[in-house]
Every structure is written in structure tokens, then in C-alpha cells.
Design a protein around this nucleic acid. Structure first.
Lengths: 348, 348
DNA sequence: TATATGAATGTAAACGTTTACAGGGGAAAA
DNA sequence: TTTTCCCCTGTAAACGTTTACATTCATATA
């Protein structure tokens, strides 16, 4: 492999000049530039970005930490991050935590050792020790899918409480009052937790008492959704509607309900959360709360670069928390509850 | 930031010794080791893997190039790659080509500059210039989803021709003889191309003449699948079955067919390819050709490491091409063609 | 003519590791 | 006692860039 030095010798200039034609060509005389360019071609010179990173303490690489690339919602925001990073000539290293805190911890450590310029994290536990350390040490990072509304940490997310509330409200307005919830284990996702809070509050506001047996917690997977809904449908007075804390679980729930012989949505209304692409391609179309996943990734990355490139002179940039809009998308997987149908004669 | 030198001074040893306690602790006396470890803690030492990479010419990073992380099949193999890399203490940089050759070209260049130890590539054009260059220069890479069966390039894939053949055969055996195909544009994926070849050959072997108008080419997306199937259904004698070159397109096709008022599978049989997870969660369950996506990623990574770590002494390791098994998964989206149903009385 | 200016280039140190090689010292062997 | 060996540690160069600073030289200015 030839180096800048080889090129320099061949072109009869110093390494500094070669470096300059690479990084600020306008600062070197045209004739010299040509000579150097030709020399680079002659010895098939390959730039070593790692050596540059070493010299400049800037790797032009960022780390992206998500629970799992399998959930399309994270795939979508990954794309957002990548697209933004691409514009900034930056590469992204991807890591999956599989919702495990120790994995998250390990990943962050490794990526920092790799000298990434910053981190975008969909954390399993945003209030845990690791994030705190990062914050204390002033390392540039931004939280994704975060529920943090105000404070010192950079974050972009949606209002998960409100989302959970709105989802539940939709079901109540349809006349359901036995509403189950399928959620991820709270210890592994604080998003689920907030959505559940919204659900509880909404029930309360409508005079419906919360029942513990109407909550099924599970791991985030299609099978998790399927099994959980079956559990909910097996209790004495089963729910007529279930709110799943994400679309992935909801898709699983649909299958589970059907395996128990139910027709959808007549026998069971199902709500999801996320609005992944496939949600509108499925029968019945999944009613859900849309969150702008691609946009979230994109904006997260933008904020990160903003933070990284900020002039540290004036006490550092001021942290920003950005809340994106979520919205209710009504499709066919939810319909009027049995009582409502009877009273207004729309029972089929 | 403290360096190895700081630690060394603090512990009263040389930098070499500190480096040794990091990389081969067993080679240093216990008492010294302890002293160094303590010193590292005291000055909050953070290892710089980038500096290491620079010194050793080994970045412990590999690049993974795929068309798009949005297609679950690539997300799944990405996970396979990541899991394997994780075991080897290696990180993976992810790049999407969006099926564009110039993107692929750019990514490969950038990643090589970043000094990745190797590349795993799901190429848009495996016989193009870039792959050739990589090969000529002896850079370690392995092709994923490749159809290459024998030769000098490392590759893992399935037999796409056979897969296309088997899919078509399934439809023919069900009594269909007007069989459409929805495929990606051939110029952007050689996999699609081979599946289409299998389709044609199978038609031929069963005495069915190939009709150009029964082929719809499109970009790889749900909407692409939806629009294409509509096009196929609008021709004078529309197909009674369509084979989509991947599940993603097939899911789109299902929607398209329904939007034209068809019942599935009674009015149209639909086949996919890949067997993405969601394929079995959809109604009707999607009949498809399964390919082991996770396994493909995992094995691809294993081969890459094998190649990277091979002792270059004995003329370099011998290239391996690995063909994984694919298999027909019959679900509910395909059923007997109209004629067959009439003749044997199973028409509903 | 003498001086100031500025553009283009060169010099050399710095970045934080690794590692080939050398050396010290103690135990075992002769 | 001398020699040999091995374990542990140190020395110093090397990896390929960038960049602050110095230098050169031509041109403009006084």
C-alpha cells in the first residue's frame, strides 16, 4: 500500500502538500495539484481514513444503538439516521441490544473505544447509569424514541403517554369498556411503560376501573403478541378490544385471536402503535398510532451533528429535546364494541 | 483523555507493559498487573481502539452492504452478520445501496478507506467492475445472496434458478397455466433475474409458452408489488396466479389484487419468495420459497472471518462458495386453479 | 531601492498504540 | 562457581495522517 509519503516523493512535493490537495485543493497551485493527482494515480494511492481519524481525533463515524433491527420501526429510523449521516460523509456502526441493558452497556463502551464521534441511542433504560455517565463526561449523544420532554439531555421522541391515551380513547369511543393491553415488559422499555400509563389514565378518566388481569406483558416479538392475546382471551370475562404497545405485537395478536377462532374485527378490536409500513397492507388494516420513524432517525442524527459540530467556545450548545407528532390512524381492525352495536342496531 | 503513557507513568512501568496487561495479561507478573490496573482506574483510562487499529492495520470492523434495511429479509441477515461479528469482537458498519450501483461503488470505496477488515456484500451487480477490482486486489470480501456456484470469489447464497423453478412448478401442479410474474427490475438485482429464469424454464418444461405481457417489472417495494399486480390483472386474459420475486412484493400484490375486488386465494393465487417472518402472520398465509436469511448472514460472516484470519503463508485460503437450501412453504395464498377445481369438483 | 504583503510550499512534531528486540535477574543445571 | 535458560520488563521505532509554524519568492507599495 502506498502512502502520502510515496505520493509526495513521486510528485516531488512534501507530504503536507499532498494532504492539502486531498483536503483543501483550492489552497494549492493548479500545476502542483495536477502533478500530485497524477502521482496518486500512478502509485494507486488509497487514502487511509483511519490514520486521519487518529491524527484528527475525529473518526467520521457514529454509533447507532437500537433494540433490534428486526422490528421494522427501528429499521425505518435506522434508514433515517443513515441517510442523514451519508450527507455528512459519516458512516454508522449499528448495534442491537435485544432489549438487554448489559448489551447496551457493552455496546456503548466498545463504540466509544472505537472513537465514534457520537452516539444515537434507543435506550432500554434512559434513566440508568450508562446514560448518566455519558452525560457527565460530556460525550455527544442523542436519545431516540425518548419520552424526555425537558432537561439537559438531547433527545427526540414522541409523547408516549398521550399516544397510549389516544389509542385507548379510540377504543372507548367505539364503545369498548373491557380493554386489554399487550405490552412489552416494562423493565425492558420505558416507552411501553408510558403507553401503559396513558392507557390507565384514559380508563380512569372514563370511569373504567383498571384490572391487572387485562394486562399481558411479553417480549417484543410476533409470537409474544400471539401468546399474550391468547392469555387475555382465556380469562373469565375476556376483553372485547386490545391495545398492543406496538404494531409488531399487534400483528402477532391478530394471528393469536384468529387461532382461537375469532373473527376480526367483529369479535375483537385490535390496536397497534407505530404504523409500520405493513400495517396498512394487512387484512384487516391495522388501526394504530403513527409515529414518524424515519423522521425520528433523521432528526436524531441532525441533532447529533449539530451537537458534535457546535462551537464549544460559548459553553457548549444548549441541549434540545424534540417532540414529534403522533397521530391516530383508523383502519379496519377496530370497530364498535358489542354493546354499542346492539343499542344502535348496527349489529351484523 | 489519559493515554497508555499516563497510566505507565502512574504505575511506574513502560507503555509496553501497559499494552501487555491490556492484550495479554497472562504475560505480566500479577503484582505488576494489579498496579497497572489500579493506575488505569485512577486516571479513568479509556482505551483507544482507533489508535490500535492504526498501529496494527486491523480495525476490527467489517462493512455490510445491502440494498435496503427496509426489506425484512435483509434485516434478518444483517442480524446474522452482527451476531457472528459480535462473537469476534468486531463491529459492523452498515450501508444501503438502494439498489443503485453507484451507491454500491461509493460505499465500497469509503469503507475500504475506513480500513474495514473485510466486506460482506449483497451486490446489485456481482459481475460488475467493482467486485472484479476487489477480487484483483485480493481484498477480503464475501458475496451474500449470491448465485455463484463455483469459482474464485467467496460467496454464500441459494439456488435462485431452482427456487424460481420450484415456485412455478407448485403453481402449475395446482392447475394454473396462466402464471404471471412480478419481479424487480433485472438491472438492479441478479437474484430476480435467476428466479425469472427458473420460472421460464419451468413453464417451458410443462409446455406452457412464455408470454412477455405476464411479466411486470418494478422497484422493490410494497407499492411496486401492488401496482404491478394491477397491471397484470388488466391485460386481456389475466393470470390466475402470480409469482412475486420476493415476499415484500407479494404482500403488496395481495393488497393490489384485493383493491381490484378479487378474493384471495379463490380468484388469484399468489406466491412469494424469502419467507420473511410476517409471511406466516398474514391472511391468507403466504405460500413462498424459504431462504435461510439469518443463516446466510451468519455464514457469510463466518466465511469472511475465515478468509481474513487465514494464514497467508500457504498461498491464501481457498475460496468457498456455499449454497444453502431453500424450500417450498405451502400456506393458504395458493390454491387449485379454476379449471382444476371444475374438473374435480372442488369448486366452492 | 527597500520594505511589506501574501500565496504556495516545506519542516517536523504530534496523535496513542503495538511489537521486535534487548536486557536484567533469578533459578536451575553443570 | 559458572553457565544456561526463561520470565518479566523496558527501549524505541513504526504505523499514515494533519497542522502550526517557518520559509521562500514574487509582487505590490512606499
Amino acid at each position: 500500500m502506498s502512502t502520502i509519503l510515496d505520493v509526495a516523493k513521486l510528485a516531488g512535493v512534501s507530504t503536507a502538500t499532498v494532504s492539502r490537495v486531498i483536503n483543501s485543493p483550492e489552497s494549492v497551485r493548479e500545476e502542483t495539484r495536477k502533478r500530485v493527482t497524477r502521482a496518486m494515480a500512478v502509485c494507486n494511492y488509497k487514502y487511509n481514513a483511519l490514520a486521519r481519524g487518529f491524527a484528527t481525533k475525529r473518526s467520521n463515524t457514529i454509533g447507532l444503538i437500537i433494540p433490534t433491527i428486526n422490528n421494522p420501526v427501528f429499521a425505518e429510523s435506522t434508514r433515517g439516521v443513515q441517510d442523514c449521516a451519508g450527507e455528512k460523509k459519516t458512516q454508522v456502526i449499528l448495534g442491537n441490544t435485544y432489549y438487554q441493558y448489559d448489551q447496551e452497556e457493552g455496546l456503548i463502551k466498545t463504540l466509544r473505544e472505537k472513537q465514534v464521534d457520537g452516539l444515537i441511542i434507543t435506550s432500554t433504560n434512559p434513566r440508568g447509569r450508562i446514560i448518566k455517565t455519558l452525560q457527565d463526561e460530556g460525550f455527544p449523544f442523542v436519545l431516540l424514541y425518548s419520552t424526555i420532554k425537558k432537561g439537559l439531555v438531547w433527545a427526540v421522541g414522541i409523547d408516549n403517554f398521550q399516544g397510549g391515551y389516544r389509542a385507548t380513547q379510540h377504543l372507548i369511543e367505539l364503545g369498548h369498556y373491557r380493554i386489554g393491553m399487550v405490552a412489552g415488559t416494562f423493565s425492558i422499555s420505558d416507552r411501553s411503560f408510558h403507553r401503559w400509563h396513558g392507557y390507565r389514565q384514559c380508563l380512569k378518566d372514563h370511569g373504567i376501573t383498571y384490572e391487572k388481569q387485562l394486562l399481558a406483558q411479553t417480549e417484543y416479538s410476533l409470537t409474544g403478541g400471539r401468546d399474550s392475546v391468547k392469555k387475555l382471551l382465556s380469562i373469565p370475562k375476556p376483553p372485547t378490544a386490545v391495545f398492543c404497545s406496538n404494531d409488531y405485537l399487534a400483528l402477532g395478536a391478530m394471528k393469536g385471536a384468529r387461532e382461537m377462532g375469532l373473527n376480526l374485527p367483529e369479535n375483537l378490536s385490535i390496536m397497534g402503535f407505530d404504523d409500520i409500513q405493513i400495517a396498512s397492507y394487512v387484512i384487516p388494516g391495522l388501526t394504530t398510532i403513527r409515529q414518524p420513524a424515519y423522521e425520528m432517525g433523521k432528526q436524531g442524527a441532525e441533532l447529533l451533528f449539530q451537537r458534535i459540530n457546535a462551537d464549544p467556545a460559548d459553553g457548549g450548545p444548549v441541549p434540545v429535546q424534540r417532540m414529534l407528532d403522533s397521530s391516530l390512524i383508523v383502519r379496519e381492525s377496530t370497530m364498535a364494541g358489542p354493546e354499542k352495536r346492539m343499542t344502535n342496531g348496527t349489529e351484523q
